[in-house]
Amino acid sequence: MAADHPATEGDLRSPSVPPLETARLVGFAVRAGVILCVGAAALAGVIKLDDTLGVYDSAADRNASTGYRERAHPQPVVAGSGKVLEDARLWMPEDAAYRVVRGRRYAETGYSYWAQYFLNGFLLPRRQTTSEEARWVFCFGCGAATLGRLRVFSGEGDGLVFGKVRS
């Protein structure tokens, strides 16, 4: 396959364009502009490469020093310390379905709605459902009445509880 060649359209050397001296001047300015552009790109690229390598080196070092929890969980604002989520993952069989319930004291827990979205992905292949037939339950800010129906397997002490509806 043949590669193309620089275009011929608008050739400043053609007779349809301004007189030779002007064309030469414009041509000089254009080439100077190209050199300036390449020079600016080269300078910016080289200067920034050092920073970039620093950023990537630091990230690589930080990543190598983190443990399972930091790799598997988002920040505590989303999923607390991760204790309840880990317990839930280790308790529920892979074909289980679970519900997420927000109790009256949900606003006091400090958890955002993102926690529910994180659970959805983190606990796969376990299925998040709205069906009340699901016996595994995450309760955010639930009251005593709801909790009384559960066999609690794990709690964070901040309003998040994981358990199973008593049969």
Partner: peptide, 10 residues
């Protein structure tokens, strides 16, 4: 490249 190639040679 196009700008460079179409400019007359200095």
């Amino acid at each position: 490249e196009r700008a460079w190639a179409t400019a007359p040679r200095v």
